[in-house]
């Protein structure tokens, strides 16, 4: 039974030692250690939150970037298309105006040619009539050399002229 009999002296010393140790450790060990651990835990928690936030921001930024690139691409395509259209328009217009000009020139040339032809024709006519007159004069001169010939022509003309 000796083992199971509590000894007041040892109880006293155990109680005293335990309580003193507990108060000393609470003051000089657990408080600083637990505080340091808490600070670290909070720091880690904060850092993790921060990192998650930063990640979100990066994602958002990359999304913005992607959108910007997309917008730019669309813009560029639109501009290219417009340029192409403008170019074609200009070419077409140039073609049309050139055609018009050419037609106009051809027309003018044609008119000029026509006028010149007319002019030459009338000149030719004039020449022909002059030449004809000369020829006629010469023929007449030849014809009317004899008197009786002159007489017969005058008669003939007179026959034809109606004096009514």
């Amino acid at each position: 039974m000796g083992l199971l009999t509590p000894d007041p002296g040892l109880i006293f010393w155990t109680t005293t030692s335990f309580l003193i140790l507990m108060f000393l450790l609470r003051r000089y060990a657990w408080k600083p250690i637990l505080r340091a651990l808490k600070v670290r835990e909070e720091y880690i928690e904060f850092s993790l939150k921060d990192a998650a936030q930063a990640k979100d921001e990066v994602l958002k930024l990359s999304e913005t970037r992607r959108q910007m690139i997309e917008t730019t691409r669309l813009e560029r395509e639109k501009m290219m298309r417009e340029t192409r259209e403008t170019r074609e328009e200009i070419i077409n217009e140039a073609k049309a105006s050139a055609t018009r000009e050419a037609e106009k020139i051809i027309q003018q040339s044609r008119e000029l040619i026509e006028r010149e032809r007319q002019e030459s024709l009338s000149e030719i006519r004039q020449q022909i009539s002059l030449i004809s007159l000369e020829i006629a004069e010469k023929i007449l001169k030849q014809e009317l050399v004899s008197e009786e010939r002159q007489q017969s022509v005058i008669r003939e003309y007179l026959d034809h002229v109606n004096f009514n």
Partner: peptide, 16 residues
């Protein structure tokens, strides 16, 4: 007390 006092001193000195 020696072990944990020494550890606590390190924690106070070096920060958490």
């Amino acid at each position: 007390f020696w072990v944990f006092g020494a550890a606590a001193k390190r924690y106070s000195k070096r920060g958490g």
